[in-house]
Amino acid sequence: MTPPDGRRRPLPRLLRFLRTYPRRSPLTLCFVLLLAVGHFWLQDFLSPERADDLRAYVSTNLDNLPDHPVRAMIGSALLYDGTLTDVTDPGFGGTLITLGLGVCGCLAWVERRWGSLRALGVFLGGHVLATLLTAVVILFALHRDWYPEDVRAASDYGISYGAQTVLAVAVLAVPRWARLPWAAFVVAWPLSGDSEWPGPLPDFTTVGHLLAAALGFALAAATARARARTARTAEAAEAAEAAEAAEAR
């Protein structure tokens, strides 16, 4: 059977996605606006000293997590670490992936598919769990002298772990033939930076992105298995009803 034009052609689907964006992805839209306001407030309204102090306070590093974990986690998720306007900056590619593709695209898709509360849970779950798992990896690496001691106070804030999680979950949104390339892209882009490995492990932010991707892929796999079980149960029920109807005749 030939699928309808809207399903066969990506452009009509994209236009429909954008047209219904505010109505079907209100949480994502509000989050993006909040990130933009916070970014420009930090860049243009606070003094450089106060901005640096705020970044240091919300960084989810080993110095802050034992002292004020909740405020660090929440503050980190509300401040975007990167450039939104300077397209010549090397970090602008990260903006396109994390904020553009991750939050604006994939988080919006998750919200449409699973609802606002579950989308929030996926994003925050990835943000928090990846941060905590990364902290464990840092502690282990420090014990093995793989990371320098100053990593305890390193700057580490932003939306990228949550965005990486929803990027991985969105493997369910692409056609089956594209799922492996999509998964390869999600894993590869954090490894494409020019930072040197301080030891057997990459830098801790790369580790965090890979852990966030693993969480997203695990959730996607669990969701796919649950759908398959539901489909098999429905088929078995339909077959049983058909058999009963045949016997009744």
Rank of each mutant, 00 (worst) to 15 (best):
P4N: 09
G6F: 12
G6M: 13
G6W: 11
R7N: 11
L11I: 15
P12N: 14
R13N: 12
L14I: 15
L15M: 13
R19Y: 05
R19L: 07
R19W: 10
T20K: 11
T20G: 09
T20F: 12
Y21L: 14
S25P: 09
P26V: 12
L27W: 13
L27H: 10
T28D: 03
T28F: 00
F31V: 11
V32W: 06
H39L: 08
F40L: 07
F40V: 08
L42C: 04
Q43M: 03
Q43R: 02
D44P: 03
F45L: 13
L46T: 09
D52N: 09
L54K: 11
S59V: 07
N61M: 00
D63R: 09
P66F: 10
P69M: 03
V70H: 11
M73D: 01
I74A: 07
A77V: 01
L78N: 05
L79Y: 05
L79C: 01
Y80I: 04
G82W: 02
G82V: 04
T88E: 10
D89K: 08
P90C: 11
G94C: 02
I97K: 03
G100W: 04
V103E: 02
C104H: 14
C106Q: 13
L107F: 13
W114Q: 12
W114D: 08
W114P: 08
S116N: 10
L117P: 12
R118D: 01
A119S: 11
V122S: 02
H127T: 06
V128P: 00
L129Q: 03
T131D: 02
L132V: 07
L133I: 03
L133K: 06
E149V: 14
D150R: 14
A153P: 02
A154Y: 09
A154I: 15
A154M: 14
Y157T: 03
S160M: 06
A163W: 01
Q164S: 07
V166D: 01
A168N: 10
V171G: 02
V171P: 00
A173Q: 07
R176V: 05
A178H: 11
R179F: 04
L180Y: 06
W182A: 10
W182R: 10
A183F: 07
A188C: 05
A188I: 11
P190W: 11
P190R: 12
S195C: 13
E196A: 15
P198V: 15
G199Y: 15
L201R: 15
P202M: 15
P202V: 15
P202E: 06
P202Q: 14
D203R: 15
T205A: 12
V207Y: 04
G208P: 00
A212H: 04
A212Y: 01
A213Y: 01
G216D: 03
F217Y: 08
L219M: 06
A222W: 02
A224W: 07
R225P: 05
A228V: 05
A228N: 10
T230M: 06
R232M: 03
T233D: 04
T233E: 08
A236T: 04
A237L: 04
A237P: 08
A237I: 09
A240V: 08
A242V: 00
E244R: 12
A245P: 04
